[in-house]
C-alpha cells in the first residue's frame, strides 16, 4: 500500500478553493478509515454507515471553504462533521432507543472487523483505560449524549460530569504520552 502524505497543508489549498488537484481523494484516503470507524461506533456498521460516509464526505466538500484553522485541526473539523451528522441520526425519532442496542452491536462488529493495521497499537492502548472512563468518553464522543443526559444516565450531578470527563481524557493523554515516549 502506498503511503499517503496526510499533512494538513496538503488539503488547505484545495479546501480554500485555490488551485490544487486530487485533494478530496487524498483526504478520503487519509481520513475515511477514522470517519467510517466513528460512524460505525455511533450508528453501527452496515448499509446506513455506508450512506452516512457518503453524506459526510459531501458535507466536507461543501463546507470546506468555511473551515477555519483557528477552531482546530482539519482532522478534528472532519470528525466534528462526522459526529454531528451521526448525532443528528441518533437524535432522530426513535433512534436513541436503537442506540442502546447499537452499542452492543458495535462491540460484536469491533471483534469481527479487520482493524486498520496502522491503529492496532492505538486500539490496544485505549483498551487500557478503566472501563468507567472508557464508557464516559464513549458516551460523550460516540453516543452524542449531552452533559445533562450523562448525568441522568449515570445518576451523578451535572457538575461532576465535566470533571469526570476531564479526568478520563487526562488518563487517556497519560497513556498516549507513555506510548509516544517509548
Amino acid at each position: 500500500m502506498v503511503e499517503k502524505d496526510c499533512k494538513e497543508e496538503n488539503f488547505l489549498k484545495g479546501m480554500s478553493g485555490s488551485e490544487s488537484s486530487g485533494w478530496m481523494e487524498l483526504l478520503y484516503d487519509c481520513f475515511s478509515s477514522t470517519v467510517y470507524g466513528v460512524i460505525g461506533q455511533m450508528i453501527g456498521f452496515g448499509e446506513s454507515a455506508e450512506d452516512a460516509l457518503q453524506e459526510v464526505f459531501v458535507k466536507i466538500w461543501k463546507s470546506a471553504p468555511a473551515y477555519s484553522a483557528k477552531k482546530g485541526r482539519v482532522y478534528t473539523w472532519i470528525l466534528n462533521i462526522t459526529r454531528n451528522h451521526c448525532i443528528d441520526i441518533l437524535r432522530s425519532k426513535g433512534h436513541r432507543e436503537e442506540g442502546q442496542t447499537t452499542s452492543l452491536a458495535v462491540e460484536k462488529v469491533n471483534r469481527s472487523y479487520e482493524w486498520d493495521s496502522a491503529i492496532l497499537g492505538l486500539n490496544e492502548l485505549i483498551k487500557k483505560l478503566p472501563e468507567d472512563q472508557y464508557r464516559l468518553i464513549r458516551m460523550a464522543y460516540f453516543e452524542g449524549y449531552t452533559q445533562r443526559e450523562i448525568a441522568d444516565k449515570l445518576d451523578i450531578p451535572i457538575g461532576t460530569v465535566k470533571s469526570r470527563i476531564r479526568l478520563a481524557i487526562k488518563k487517556l493523554r497519560k497513556l498516549l504520552e507513555i506510548e509516544y515516549e517509548q
Binding site: Y28, S32, S33, T34, E50, E114, D116, Y141
Partner: peptide, 28 residues
C-alpha cells in the same frame, strides 16, 4: 486534549469497503 481525542477516534478506525470510494466520488 484535541490530539488525545483524535487518537481515541483513530483507535476505532475501520477501513470502509473498497467499493464505497467510487460511490462517494460518484456522488461528489
Amino acid at each position: 486534549i484535541e490530539n488525545s481525542l483524535l487518537d481515541f477516534a483513530k483507535s476505532h478506525s475501520v477501513s470502509p469497503p473498497a467499493k464505497l470510494k467510487s460511490r462517494v466520488f460518484d456522488r461528489l
